[in-house]
Structures are given as structure tokens and as C-alpha cells.
Computed example of a mutant assay.
Amino acid sequence: MSEPQPVVGELTSAAVIVVATIEPGGEDAVREALADFGDLEDSVGFGSPLAELSCVTAFGSDAWDRLFGGPKPPELHPFVPLDGPRHAAPATPGDLLLHVRSENQGLCFELAHRLLDRLGPAVTVVDETHGFRYYDRRDLLGFVDGTANPHGRGALDAALIGPEDPFAGGSYVIVQKYLHDLAAWNAVSVSEQEHVIGRSKLENIEMSDEAKPGDSHVAVNTVIGEDGEEVDIMRFNMPFGELKSGEFGTYFMAYAASAATTEQMLRAMFLGTADAPRGDRILDFSTALTGGLFFAPPVEFLDDPPQPGVSAAELLPITADAVPVASPSDGSLRIGSLKASMS
């Protein structure tokens, strides 16, 4: 399998998440900058190896068409907005996603700053979120977030496309920025909060199937595969907040081998299910402000991305015997071989 970007790992203490659009005519500058991202990460993080600095770079559907040639990840498409009986999930602009995380907030800021400086005027930032760890990995609602994340081999299987696929080592990323109505939430008893989430607040223990409401957050977000087993995704949710504006929330970020898994969860949350016809009860207290679907390709792809205008057939290895002899008048560049863009 190609070397994946760092889409699997433990939750860190800090993160900076940047969503940007690519300016018309900025495609070449963005493509050229990608090869420098690894060096910039090494430069910032070299002196603090225990800080576990990393960055994932991902692309939206429209940006992929503008930036790259060759095949496109089959499940990469514009984020589908959802308009449910009570709540809505909007789709918002976003061509480029930078997910910078570390145990050191200062390093997150420095790397994000250097990456954006390298991209220059080719991009415009449309959303920037600085996440932090809150108490013992709890969200601002007071519940532990990320308990259901898989570990080890299970995490790799959940987050990364398998070796049999042309996009092996890649991952689909869905992001949403949620604002919490903390006044309304804190006015509800702890027992009622636990029924909204589907877990105990202090002990972080999931309720039994008999006690857990069908419209609880845990129940609605459980996806069962064809084999009868639960299908996992890799979450990197982070709390964020600003005292001046009074805005507090959770930045939802999910990596998955298939975008369909996370999309199924969102449809259940916003459109409802047989057991939760009005959707996920957590949405009575949390409002989605943004929504985007991106694809994080393997590291090798970023180092040498396929140029636009190159067809999938042309990316396949060819022999010298297969190269047609062009006459001088046909404008041929007389290229004798093409380098495959992906391993």
C-alpha cells in the first residue's frame, strides 16, 4: 500500500483546521506547493519530536478536477446538504483542507501559518478553527468524545482504502463545524443529557440497548454492515470556543475508507430513522454551520501529483514499442514514456 497521510492516531491536545478555496488561476501554484509541505512539517516539528506534529492535506471534488489529471476517487463529490424535519446540514465552500494537529498548540499555529504562506494568494481561507483538549477528552457538552474510535489494525481498516484499490492509502474526510447552545444544554438535567447522548456522563459507559433511546446520538450514529458487524470511522473531533463572541462548539472530523459510511450517519442524524423519525436529539442543542467532503491522497501523490489534462489511460505504464512515431508537423513533444502517478 502507498504511504498514507497521518489519518490514524490518538487524539492530540491541539489542532488547527483550515478550509480554503483556490483562486481562479491559482491551480499551478497550489500543485507546486504540495511537494514542499512535508519539508515544512519537518522543519517546524524537528526540535519537538514528542509534540507529534502532523498535517493531513485533502481536496474537495471541484478542486480535484481543477488540480489533477487521471482518475478521480469514486466517492469524492460535493458535500450533499441535508434538510431534515427539524434540522439542516449545510454544504459550504471548500477546495483545500489542512488538518494540523499536535500536543503543542504553538506548533500547530506555526505549521499552519507556514503552509498558508507557501500557498500565498493562490488560496483564500474561508474557515479557520483552533481546537483544544477539554478536561479528560470531553467535549464542551461534558461528555467524553472519541470513545468509539477503533485502534490498531481496526483503525487502519476503518480509515484507509485497502491495497486492492487504485487509491490505496487514501481516505475520505467529512468535516462539519457545530455550535452548541450551552445555555439550553445546561438547563437540562444530567439524566436527560445522558439519554440524549446514550452514555453516562461521569463514567462514560454506553447505555444498554434496552435503556438507550432510539434517537440518542450513540444509537443514531451506529452503522451495521452487511456482515452484521458495526462499521467504524476514525474521528478527530475537537472542542473550540471564543469567549468574546460567546460561540462554543465541536469541530467534527471523520476519516473513512468509504465516504458512504459517514454519509449514512449524517442522513440518520438529520433526516431521521425508523427509531428516530425526527433525527438525532443532540441536534436540538448543536447546530451545523459548515459541511464539506474531501479526499486525502497518499503521500506519494502529494509529492508528484498528476498534471491536469492527462487521461487515465495515459497514466498506465507503456513501452517504447507502444509509442507512436509523430511527424514533425503534428506538434508532438516526442515523449517516450509516462510516469504512473500512483503506486
Rank of each mutant, 00 (worst) to 15 (best):
R118E: 10
V123E: 04
Y135F: 13
E128M: 11
V126D: 07
V125K: 06
A155H: 10
V125C: 08
F132Y: 11
R137L: 06
D139G: 11
V144E: 04
D145E: 12
N149E: 04
P121I: 06
H130A: 12
T147K: 04
H151Q: 15
V144H: 05
D136L: 08
R118I: 01
D136V: 09
V126T: 14
A122H: 04
G146W: 01
N149Y: 03
T124H: 09
G120F: 13
G131M: 05
P150Q: 12
F132C: 02
L141Y: 04
L140G: 03
V123D: 04
V144M: 06
E128G: 05
F143R: 00
H130S: 13
A155L: 11
G142W: 02
R133Q: 13
D127N: 13
Y135A: 10
V125I: 09
L119A: 11
P150V: 08
Y135K: 13
G146L: 06
R118A: 11
H151T: 15
L140A: 05
R133T: 09
R138H: 10
D139W: 00
G131T: 01
V126C: 10
G131H: 05
D136P: 00
P150W: 11
A122E: 03
R153M: 14
Y134F: 10
D127W: 02
G120L: 11
V126M: 07
R153K: 14
G146H: 00
R138V: 13
N149H: 05
P150F: 10
H130V: 15
V144R: 07
R118N: 07
G142F: 03
G154A: 15
D145T: 03
D127K: 10
Y135V: 15
P150L: 11
D127S: 12
A148E: 12
R118V: 01
V126S: 07
D139C: 01
F132W: 02
D139H: 01
L140T: 02
A155C: 12
R118D: 07
V125F: 08
E128Q: 15
A148R: 04
F143Q: 01
L156A: 14
T129R: 14
F143Y: 02
L140F: 09
D127E: 15
T124D: 12
V125Y: 06
R133D: 08
V144N: 01
P150C: 11
D139S: 03
L141I: 00
G131I: 01
G120R: 14
G142M: 04
D136C: 02
